[in-house]
C-alpha cells in the first residue's frame, strides 16, 4: 500500500487499519473469517490422508494394529499433553493482550514456543526409534515376524505394515511441518508483542495466529488415537 493512500483519507486512525476497510471491526472480522476459511482448506488437505487411512485400516486391520503397536504410545500421549498445554498458553497470551498484561503476554508466547519445540523434540525421538527399528518405508524397511495383536501365531504382512508406516510418516510429518510453520508465526508474534504492537484494542494477529495453532492441535487430537492406539489391548 502506498503511503499516500492512507493520507488521502486524512482521518486519525490506527495505523494497522488498511485503507480499503471502513472500520477496524470490518478488518478484524475479515481477518478471522479468512483464517477460518483457510483452516477449512486445511481440513480438506488432511482429509485426503484420513480417507486413505480409513480405507487401508479397514482392509489391513491386523497389520495396522501390529504396526501401530510398535510405536511408543507413551511418547505420543505426552506429546498430546504438551500440545494441549501450548493451546492453553496461547489463549492466555491473548487474554493478557486484552487486559494489557504485557509481561504475561510475552511469557505465554515464549512458553507456547517452548511447548512447540518440546513437541518437535519428542517427535524426533520417536522418529529416531523408528529409524533404528527399520520401520521407515523404503529399501531398508523390515517388519518380519511381528505378531498381529489378538491373533497369536499370525504375522503381519510387511507390505501392509509398510503402508501404515508410510501414512504414519506422511501424516505426522505434515503435522510437524505445520508445527514448524506455527513456530515461525509465533516468533513473529513474539517480536511484534515485544515491540508493543498489540493493545487491548488491536491484537488481531495474535488471534489469527492462535486460531492456526489451535487447529494444528486439533489435528493432533485425531492423529493420536488413530495412529498410536489401534487395538492396544491384548
Amino acid at each position: 500500500m502506498s503511503d499516500s493512500t492512507v493520507a488521502v483519507q486524512g482521518e486519525t486512525h490506527n495505523p494497522a487499519l488498511l485503507h480499503h476497510f471502513a472500520t477496524e471491526e470490518q478488518q478484524r472480522n475479515a481477518s478471522s473469517f479468512g483464517m477460518w476459511i483457510f483452516l477449512g482448506t486445511e481440513v480438506m488437505f488432511f482429509g485426503g490422508l484420513f480417507c486413505a487411512y480409513l480405507i487401508y485400516r479397514g482392509w489391513y486391520f491386523g497389520d495396522f494394529a501390529a504396526a501401530s503397536k510398535s510405536i511408543n504410545a507413551a511418547l505420543g500421549g505426552t506429546n498430546t499433553a504438551v500440545l494441549i498445554c501450548s493451546s492453553l498458553t496461547v489463549v492466555l497470551a491473548i487474554w493478557a493482550a486484552q487486559t494489557s498484561r504485557r509481561a504475561l503476554m510475552l511469557a505465554m508466547l515464549v512458553l507456547t514456543m517452548l511447548f512447540g519445540l518440546a513437541f518437535l523434540g519428542i517427535k524426533g525421538i520417536e522418529y529416531r526409534d523408528k529409524f533404528v527399528e527399520h520401520h521407515v518405508p523404503g529399501p531398508s524397511f523390515s517388519f518380519e515376524h511381528e505378531e498381529i495383536p489378538s491373533h497369536p501365531g499370525e504375522y503381519a504382512n510387511p507390505r501392509h505394515a509398510e503402508i501404515f508406516f508410510a501414512l504414519y510418516f506422511i501424516m505426522t510429518g505434515l503435522h510437524a511441518l505445520h508445527m514448524v510453520v506455527g513456530l515461525g508465526i509465533f516468533s513473529w508474534l513474539l517480536w511484534a508483542a515485544w515491540k508493543g504492537r498489540f493493545t487491548p484494542e488491536y491484537h488481531t494477529p495474535l488471534e489469527i495466529g492462535g486460531l492456526y495453532w489451535h487447529f494444528v492441535d486439533i489435528v493432533w487430537i485425531y492423529l493420536f488415537p488413530l495412529l498410536y492406539l489401534i487395538d492396544r489391548h491384548r
Binding site: 488437505f45 485426503g48 486413505a52 503402508i163 508410510a166 506422511i170
Partner: peptide, 25 residues
C-alpha cells in the same frame, strides 16, 4: 476452490512421495 483444491494438493503429495520413496500407497 477452497474445498476441492487441498484434496488434489495432498493427492499430489502422495504421488510425489510414492514415486520418490517407493511407498506402496
Amino acid at each position: 476452490q477452497i474445498l476441492g483444491t487441498p484434496v488434489i494438493a495432498i493427492t499430489l503429495v502422495l504421488v510425489v512421495a510414492e514415486r520418490a520413496l517407493h511407498l506402496g500407497i
